[in-house]
Amino acid sequence: IGEIRRYLRDNNPIRVSRSLRDIAYKAIQVREVLLNKHSREPSLNEIADELNLPREEVIFAMDAIQEPVSLFEPIYH
């Protein structure tokens, strides 16, 4: 347990927002690569597979780099 805990901690002294941004940018790059390779829009599953991440992690990250509320809801900004 101690080892797993150390693994989780040591690799991640950073803020969540920062790590999500990193994943999101990687996802955007991978999407671009797959798009060029197959000449079609890749599915989220394909992007997640390529990144070796669960697809919900990619969703969470991609969402984090967007506006917190919908683009069309100016009221909170």
Binding site: R5, R9, P13, R15, E56, F60
Partner: peptide, 26 residues
Amino acid sequence: GLARIAVAAFASECNLDVGELEEIKV
């Protein structure tokens, strides 16, 4: 995975670091 990410999204307003959030998700 859905449960894990919903909790992560819920807990993300707590300003945790990645390790702490990862532990909650596990």
